[in-house]
């Protein structure tokens, strides 16, 4: 168990410290890549159970994108699906012994939130033009401009801290309980399972909501109007 929120350094490359998070993420990337390659290689018209599960997930995400963003999915699906699958795998990998999830490191979650921070204006500008997107900040009235700007920053912070806080606290609680009560901690680990799935879902849905706010006409901060 890690001591608090310190992330141990595995090895050094010159001046660069390679932490446990980075190593776990590399493993995760390799695993997900190989899994995707394997599934792609044996796609069948009559899907097996694994292909069925992946197809169900993609269909669900398609539906969500159509509902929330209000556009056809192919342009938005890669981002949403990548975020969902990566965060889900990263959250659940802590169930394996020894391995700790990369999302319990603020660096990982900040990186993910920064991706969202930059991709939202990208989609907004490509959909509505530069002026159109910037005009969105002046809605509903020009006086709202500072609040829209602060909202843009604070929601990015909240996005990263929410994922980090949930995953790290889950691991911390399990660690404390193992040292106090032993096997009882398994129950809390199950709770962590639920938290992991829900947090991955929430991160993806919130990303889609932000993109939807930027892509449709209206203020960027406008949420959940559907």
């Amino acid at each position: 168990m890690s001591q608090g929120i310190e992330i141990p350094v595995i090895f050094n490359v010159g001046q660069v410290e390679v932490t446990r998070t980075v190593v776990t993420t590399w493993g995760l990337m390799a695993g997900l890549g190989i899994a995707a390659w394997l599934i792609k290689r044996r796609l069948k018209p009559t899907p097996g159970p694994f292909q069925m599960a992946v197809e169900a997930m993609m269909t669900y995400l398609d539906e969500q994108i159509r509902d929330i963003v209000g556009r056809e999915p192919p342009r938005y699906l890669p981002l949403a699906a990548t975020l969902f699958i990566f965060i889900l795998a990263a959250n659940l990998i802590s169930l394996l012994p020894v391995v700790e999830s990369p999302t319990a490191d603020p660096a990982t979650t900040s990186a993910l939130a920064l991706i969202v921070f930059f991709v939202v204006p990208f989609y907004g500008i490509s959909e509505r033009g530069f002026g159109g997107y910037l005009r969105g900040y002046l809605k509903p009235a020009w006086i709202m401009l500072p609040f829209n700007l602060i909202g843009e920053l604070s929601r990015t912070l909240a996005l990263s801290v929410r994922l980090f806080g949930n995953m790290m606290s889950g691991q911390l609680v399990v660690g404390v309980l193992i040292s106090l009560a032993g096997v009882v901690a398994v129950v809390v680990e199950f709770l962590g399972l639920i938290t992991g799935v829900v947090q991955a879902y929430i991160f993806t849905i919130l990303t889609l909501v932000y993109i939807g706010g930027a892509v449709r006409s209206g203020a960027p901060a406008e949420e959940g109007e559907k």
Partner: peptide, 20 residues
Amino acid sequence: SRTLFVGLAMVESTAIYCLV
């Protein structure tokens, strides 16, 4: 339920700030 989850996430962030 989708709106509920998004709303819960918003509400929860206050508690997470305290945790941090």
